[in-house]
Amino acid sequence: MKRLRIGDIRPDIKQIERRAFLRQSLSLGALTMLTGCSLDNPAAPDFIDRVLKGMSHWNDRVQAAIFSPTRLAPVYPESAITKPFPFNAFYAEAQAPVVDGATYRLELAGMIADKRPWTVADLRKLPHESQVTRHICVEGWSAIGKWGGVPFHVFLERIGADKTAKYVGFKCADGYYSSIDMPTALHPQTLLALDYGDAELPRKYGYPMKLRVPTKLGFKNPKHITEIFVTNDYPGGYWEDQGYNWFSGS
């Protein structure tokens, strides 16, 4: 092992200093102070963080008002499907969870009348629909894919979910979690997707089941769902808790 001498790292220090200098001289005085505090430390919110959070909550309300329960996301011909459809998660593709379909159970909790867990086979007995829609990522890219599964409103009805509740929350096999508003959960195109293309949902796209919400950004489409709960207490989400806007409607 090579021992580090101060001479080895000094050029780096210089570069960091130079970068800091550039940043201070270029980011227009007051803005320098602002850039340091942009929801990058949720544990210690400062004044700017609170303003940005407040505006984000305001935007949640505006988006809920703009959201139409009947307006459909545009659908595309199968020839428009993006190939290969990109993999995206907070980990690399090789780390995607391995879920055993034979022992898998979808758990239900919260304001739901019938909380019996569901097997994949039981889910497949419910009405099935498929659609080709555009998946839009919060990063700005988009891709068109085909998902098939159970219309979520059918499932919520079947389990006796309280449709007057505010939120539907999701917990996933990879530790991911998220939540959506009830009107979006009941939207005709919101699917409990079991298929991608014409085949069973592969591991990289969320086996055995993901939520497909064509009226929301990609990160509001949790994969590998293991629990669904209905609640009036704001459940947040993996990215939402770090600062992404909660509603994130399209």
Partner: peptide, 28 residues
Amino acid sequence: ASPIFGFRFPDQLTLGAWLGGALAWHFA
């Protein structure tokens, strides 16, 4: 976060520290 063209803006010139922060600034 997802450049349309073959270049990126120097991060030091941008506002928001990360994508979530930048989006929060933009939508505020």
